[in-house]
Computed example of a mutant assay.
Amino acid sequence: MICRKIEELRQGCLGLIRRASPYNLGDPPSSSRMTTADNSSQVTQTAHQLVEQLDALPRTLQARPSRSGAELSVGILLWPRFPMLSLGGLCDALRHAADRGDQSRQLRCLWTIVGAQGESVEASCGIPVQAQSTFPDVTQFDYLVVIGGLLPHLDQVDRRYWDYLKQAAEAGVPLIGMCTGSFVLARAGLMEDHVACVHSFHLDDYRRMFPALRVVTHADYLIDGTRITCAGGISVVEMAARLISLHCGPDRASKVIHQMTVSRQGGSSFVERRAALGYLSVEDATVRHAVLLMEENLEAPLNIVVIAKMIGTSVRNLERAFATEMNTSPNEFYRRMRLRYARWMLVNTARKITDIAYECGFADSAHFIRVFREAYGVTPGKLRASRGAAAA
């Protein structure tokens, strides 16, 4: 019953996303859309109903137990000249997930700005933000987030900030580096054996400052064990929605996406993947966590052994869980997921077939075309052509 309800709500949410998306090739010209007061009122009513229904869904089994009374608790460290967009994006995502409607009470999610007593940290736009709590017990947080600032100000912080990060690492609290927060974690010696995701603007800076550490720049964010790094900007919302889905359930993430959807002209995004793949609602936390990792790594598929290790189980247990919940193996589910995303992009975007093949983890277009035809009985090119003719 719950699964069916979530699917119904998901379809309603995706309808709104598609109307706002530049990839919806079948949309009518903008001049014909929602031009009357009645239509505008209907859209508003539908949006409110969707949020109300998402809020009314029963809580799902958490994929990860929380360290606090809430389902997700986040501590936030601000570095001098940090980007306000990152702080606002993270906190707004959490507040939408935390309460009903727009009441914004910290119920299901908690967020706290940590720092020296009475101290304010100035954002890059010049607005100061004051700390709410003076270095509390770090174990109360499920994640400790550091939002980095302008690189010339990297070392201009109280020593206690560095010590607090190291305390969190020693206590096993996952650390999140947002924007140049990855530089902060690396400078603190906390990125050894971990890969960082940085914005392309700072790629050369990271390589120059930390030549022995691994870094990528093709992703919005990267989950690498107990280290999560995010390139910043609108990617913050995508990362926050991922954590909310993991801790609070797909209905909470759906609400965040509905309230904070950001459309982009290129590159895969969390919104695209959600539109293509939908939300998985199963009771088994092992399966849910594995699927989240699969979704994060469509372009460079993870080995099932690696997935099992990352979620703290054995390959045998993972295979048994998938057989019970999904009636298939993890490898086969992963392959179908990549093909389903490829099919969605063929229908909803104008990207080249070769680019779609690479983005869905296929080594070359010939292999992709063969596997796609076996799965759907038609080649990618013919599917796109037939959909184009139907739309015309």
Rank of each mutant, 00 (worst) to 15 (best):
M1A: 14
I2V: 09
Q11H: 13
G15V: 06
R18C: 07
A20H: 14
D27N: 09
P28D: 09
P29H: 15
P29I: 04
S32I: 11
S40A: 14
S41D: 15
Q42L: 13
H48Y: 11
L57P: 08
A63F: 02
P65T: 01
S68E: 05
A70G: 06
S73F: 08
W79K: 08
W79L: 05
M84Q: 13
S86Y: 11
S86W: 04
L94E: 00
R95K: 13
A98H: 05
D99P: 11
G101E: 13
R105K: 10
L107W: 15
W111K: 08
G115D: 06
A116M: 13
Q117H: 12
Q130A: 14
A131S: 12
D137R: 05
D142E: 04
D142W: 01
L144A: 02
V145G: 01
V146C: 12
V146G: 09
G148T: 04
G149C: 11
Q156T: 10
Q156Y: 08
Y161T: 04
A169D: 14
V173M: 09
L175D: 03
T180K: 10
G181P: 04
A186T: 08
A186Q: 06
A188F: 06
H194E: 01
H194M: 07
V195G: 03
A196T: 07
F201I: 05
F201S: 07
H202M: 03
D204I: 10
Y206Q: 06
F210A: 08
R214T: 12
A219P: 00
A219E: 13
D220V: 01
I228D: 02
T229P: 00
A231Q: 08
G232P: 07
S245L: 02
D251V: 04
R252C: 12
A253V: 02
S254L: 15
I257K: 01
R264T: 07
L280F: 01
E283W: 02
V287S: 03
H289V: 01
M294V: 04
E296P: 05
E296V: 04
A300D: 12
A300S: 10
A300W: 14
N303L: 06
K309C: 10
K309P: 00
T313L: 00
S314H: 02
L318K: 10
R320T: 10
F322W: 00
E325Y: 00
S329T: 15
Y341L: 11
V347G: 01
N348A: 07
A350W: 12
R351T: 06
K352C: 10
T354N: 08
I356K: 03
Y358H: 15
S365M: 10
H367S: 15
F368Q: 03
F368S: 09
R370L: 11
E374N: 15
T379M: 12
K382M: 13
K382D: 14
S386R: 15
A389T: 12
A390Y: 08
